[in-house]
Computed example of a mutant assay.
Amino acid sequence: MAITHETRVTNQVHVEPRPTDLRELWKRLRESGDAYAREQLVLAHAPLVKWVAGRIAATLPPHVEEGDLISYGLVGLTSAVDRFDPDREVRFETYAVTRIRGAIIDELRSQDWVPRSVRSRAREIERTHTKLEHQLHRAPTDEEMADAMDLSVRDFQDALLQVSQATVHALDELWSVGDASGDQVSLLDTIQDERADDPEQLLAEQDLRDQVGDAIQRLPEREKVVIALYYYENLTLREIGEVLGVTESRASQLHTKAVLRLRSRLAGGDVENA
Rank of each mutant, 00 (worst) to 15 (best):
Q40G: 00
G67M: 11
D197L: 12
R250I: 05
R91E: 15
D210A: 06
D34I: 02
G67S: 13
R265H: 09
T98I: 15
V271L: 06
T167W: 08
S152L: 05
D82V: 02
T256Q: 00
E126K: 11
D106C: 10
Q165V: 06
R250A: 09
K27M: 12
V243S: 10
E205R: 10
A215Q: 06
E133Q: 15
L188T: 13
T190N: 11
D179W: 09
Q162E: 13
E221H: 15
Y231S: 05
V212Q: 07
R209L: 12
G102I: 05
L77D: 08
A180K: 09
H14Q: 07
T78A: 14
T130W: 08
L260P: 00
T10Q: 00
E239Y: 06
V90R: 14
T78R: 02
F156E: 01
D270L: 01
R127S: 13
P199Q: 14
V49K: 04
Y95P: 12
L187Y: 07
R28K: 15
H45I: 13
T247C: 03
L48K: 10
L25F: 01
R263S: 09
L229S: 13
V52Y: 11
A196M: 07
A96K: 01
T10W: 00
V90K: 15
V13W: 03
G54A: 14
D21W: 03
D172F: 07
Q162F: 06
E205Y: 10
A103L: 11
G182N: 01
R127I: 05
L41Q: 01
R265G: 09
R209S: 09
S71R: 07
I227Y: 07
G245V: 06
H63K: 11
R127Q: 12
V118W: 03
